[in-house]
C-alpha cells in the first residue's frame, strides 16, 4: 500500500506531499521523505555505485526502513518524486509505471498557466489524479 507520495523541488523543498494513511504518522512520513533526499543526492552524485544506468529517471529503491520502502524518481528539471510504500514485495515495473503516470500528472499540473514554477502545487485536480493513481497502484500490486 502506498502510504505517501511527494514532489520535491529543485531546492529540496516539498512541493506536494500527501500521505494516505489513517494513522497520525504524517510527521514520520515527512521525515522519511526528507531523509530519502540524501539517497537521491548520493545516487545522483555516484551513479555508478548504485548500478543504475545513466539518464535513468527512475532511481529505484532508495532505502528500506523497517516498515517502509522508499522509491525515487528524478525528472530532467531536478524535481524529485518520492514514493513510500508498506508493501514488502513490489515489482519494479509497477513502481516505474506509477512514476510515469505521476510524472505526467505533474507535468499537466505545472503546465497550468496559473501555476508559478517553484511554488507548491495546490491544484485540486492534481490531488485527485494522484489519489487515483495511488488507488490503481494498490489494485495492480495486490492483483
Amino acid at each position: 500500500m502506498i502510504v505517501c507520495v511527494a514532489v520535491v523541488g529543485q531546492q529540496n523543498n516539498p512541493l506536494y506531499i500527501q500521505s494516505f494513511t489513517e494513522a497520525e504518522d504524517d510527521l514520520k512520513l515527512h521525515h522519511i521523505v526528507h531523509c530519502s533526499l540524501d539517497v537521491v543526492d548520493e545516487r545522483v552524485n555516484n551513479p555508478k555505485r548504485s548500478g543504475s544506468t545513466l539518464n535513468e529517471t527512475f532511481l529505484g529503491l532508495l532505502y528500506p526502513t523497517e516498515n517502509y520502502k522508499v522509491y525515487g524518481y528524478l525528472t530532467n528539471t531536478k524535481v524529485k518524486f518520492i514514493l513510500v510504500t508498506t508493501d514488502l514485495d513490489v515489482r519494479d515495473a509497477d513502481v516505474r509505471n506509477f512514476f510515469r503516470r505521476f510524472h505526467s500528472a505533474y507535468v499537466d499540473a505545472v503546465s497550468n498557466p496559473f501555476h508559478v514554477p517553484g511554488k507548491k502545487i495546490t491544484s485540486r485536480t492534481f490531488a485527485e489524479r494522484v489519489s487515483n493513481i495511488v488507488k490503481s497502484f494498490r489494485l495492480s500490486s495486490s492483483g
Partner: peptide
Amino acid sequence: PAVLGTAEKPLSEWE
C-alpha cells in the same frame, strides 16, 4: 563493495 547487492535484490548504500 563496488556493486551493492544483486540485480534482483539491490541493497541500498545505507545498509
